[in-house]
Lab assay of single mutants.
Amino acid sequence: PEEVRRLVEELYRKGVSPEQVKKILKKQGIDEREIEKVLRRIG
């Protein structure tokens, strides 16, 4: 979803590592598979 992409990109631009991005967003209840999809697209 758009909102997940925005959150991931925001953290990524701040220099947060992909592993940390995953941890942070998982705590917020976001599906890990969604996060990984976005990270793959960015990375």
Rank of each mutant, 00 (worst) to 15 (best):
V8Y: 02
K22A: 08
K23W: 05
E3W: 10
P1E: 15
K26L: 15
I35A: 03
R5G: 08
K22Q: 06
K22V: 14
Q20F: 09
K23R: 13
V8G: 01
E9I: 08
L11E: 02
V38A: 14
P1Q: 13
R33V: 11
R6N: 07
V4C: 03
V8K: 00
R41C: 10
I30F: 15
I24A: 06
E2M: 10
K14T: 12
L11Y: 07
E3D: 12
L7F: 06
K37D: 15
K27S: 14
L39P: 02
L11C: 02
E36W: 01
V21Y: 01
K14A: 14
E9Y: 05
L7I: 09
V16Q: 09
S17K: 10
L7S: 04
L39H: 03
R33D: 14
E34W: 06
S17P: 13
R13T: 11
E9W: 05
R40E: 15
I30G: 01
K14G: 09
Y12S: 08
I24N: 04
R6S: 08
R5V: 13
G15D: 05
K23P: 04
I30A: 03
Q20L: 12
V16S: 08
L25M: 05
D31N: 08
V8H: 00
S17E: 11
P1C: 04
R6L: 09
E34I: 12
L25F: 01
Q28G: 06
Q28M: 13
K23G: 12
V21L: 10
P18S: 10
S17F: 05
R41Q: 15
K26F: 07
K26S: 14
E32N: 05
G43N: 07
S17M: 09
K37W: 01
P1I: 13
K27I: 11
P18N: 09
I30N: 02
D31I: 02
G15Y: 02
L7R: 08
K14R: 12
K27C: 06
R33T: 12
E36Q: 02
R33E: 15
L25P: 00
E3I: 10
L7P: 00
G43W: 01
K27E: 15
L39Y: 01
Y12F: 14
K14I: 08
V4G: 01
G15C: 03
E9S: 04
P18V: 13
E32Y: 03
G15Q: 04
G43R: 09
Q28E: 09
V21N: 00
Q28A: 12
K26Q: 14
K26H: 10
D31K: 06
Q20D: 14
R6D: 06
R6E: 07
G29V: 01
K14L: 11
E3L: 13
K26T: 14
L7T: 05
E34S: 07
E9R: 04
E2Y: 04
R13I: 10
V38S: 08
Q28W: 08
R40T: 13
E32F: 02
L39N: 03
G43C: 08
P18Q: 11
D31P: 11
R6I: 09
R5H: 10
K37M: 08
L39T: 09
E36Y: 01
K14S: 12
I42F: 07
K23L: 08
E19G: 09
P18A: 13
Y12T: 14
I30W: 12
R5D: 08
E32H: 04
I30L: 12
Q20K: 11
K14V: 08
R5N: 08
K37T: 06
E10K: 07
I24M: 09
E34H: 05
G29P: 01
E10Y: 07
G29M: 04
E9H: 05
S17T: 12
E32P: 09
E3K: 08
K22R: 13
R33K: 13
R40V: 13
K37G: 08
K23V: 14
D31H: 06
Q28S: 11
R13Y: 14
K14M: 12
I42V: 09
I42M: 13
K26R: 12
E9V: 06
K26N: 07
E10M: 07
I24F: 05
P1F: 14
R41L: 15
K23F: 04
E36P: 00
I35V: 09
R5L: 12
R41S: 15
E19C: 13
R41G: 15
L39G: 03
G15N: 06
V16M: 13
K23E: 15
Q20W: 11
E36C: 04
R33N: 13
E3F: 09
G15A: 04
L11A: 03
L11D: 00
E32M: 06
